[in-house]
Simulated assay, not measured.
Amino acid sequence: MALGGVEPGHTRPGGRTARVRDAVLRAAGDALAEHGMDALDLGDVARRAQVGKTTVYRRWGTVPILVADLLRDMADQSLPRTETGSLLGDLTANARLVQETLADARQGALFKAVIAAATCDAATARALHAFYATRVGEWAPCVEQAVDRGELPPGTDPHEVVRAVSAPLYYSLLCTGGALDAAAADRAAAAAAAAARAGLHVRSGD
């Protein structure tokens, strides 16, 4: 997760096909976190998941397709949006979930690997963009509700506000190595809320 928190390792009920998919995606996430995208190998994923190699090749075929499915699964498993009744409360809840995900040793390494791969692989980039579009869309209503309550000016772009919350946290993860703690999350939420209240995220022409 990020942009809302991801529950790693969660297994949903289902038949053998669902169990195989869960095992393979869990194994792919582990391999990504440990070795990065360049070392991700479908045969190794099959071994980790304890399923037949032909099953993995037949269902996914290539590493980018497998990673795209992993990102879809992560979006599906992401924790639901929190409603606190205030803009700052909602944005802080979002920021804390992002922070907890990125600070997690496995999840943080996984996101680093996928983001790095997305810079040079178009299929991975599309999958990553779809993941974040899903997560931002799920949290956008907290901004829309703030506009309805009069906390924000009309025409505020909810997607831009939500992106502004997580941007400093990803910058710390990828660029500065700064502390990814609750205080950092709270600062990111407060800054995004202040900018939104000041009208900095009002759509052009509104």
Rank of each mutant, 00 (worst) to 15 (best):
M1V: 04
M1F: 06
A2G: 08
A2E: 12
V6H: 15
E7D: 13
G9K: 11
G14S: 07
A18V: 13
R19I: 00
R21E: 15
D22M: 00
V24F: 04
A27L: 05
A27V: 10
A28E: 12
A28N: 10
D30N: 02
A31E: 15
A31I: 03
E34N: 04
G36F: 09
D38M: 01
D41M: 07
V45S: 06
V45W: 10
A46L: 06
R48W: 01
A49R: 05
Y57D: 02
W60R: 04
P64I: 04
I65K: 14
I65S: 14
D69Y: 00
D69E: 15
L70H: 14
R81W: 00
G85H: 01
G89A: 05
L91G: 04
N94W: 10
R96C: 06
L97T: 08
L97R: 14
L97D: 13
Q99N: 06
E100R: 15
L102Y: 12
G108F: 09
L110I: 11
K112R: 15
K112D: 09
I115K: 05
T119R: 14
D121T: 10
D121A: 08
A123V: 11
R126M: 01
A127I: 10
A127Y: 12
L128S: 13
L128T: 15
T134R: 08
R135S: 11
V136Q: 02
G137Q: 01
P141N: 06
V143G: 02
E151W: 06
P153I: 12
T156D: 08
V162P: 06
V162Q: 05
R163P: 00
A164I: 03
A167L: 09
L169K: 12
Y170A: 10
Y171S: 12
L173K: 14
G178N: 15
G178V: 11
D181E: 06
A189G: 07
A190Y: 02
A193Y: 03
A195M: 08
G199R: 12
H201T: 10
S204H: 10
G205D: 09
D206H: 14
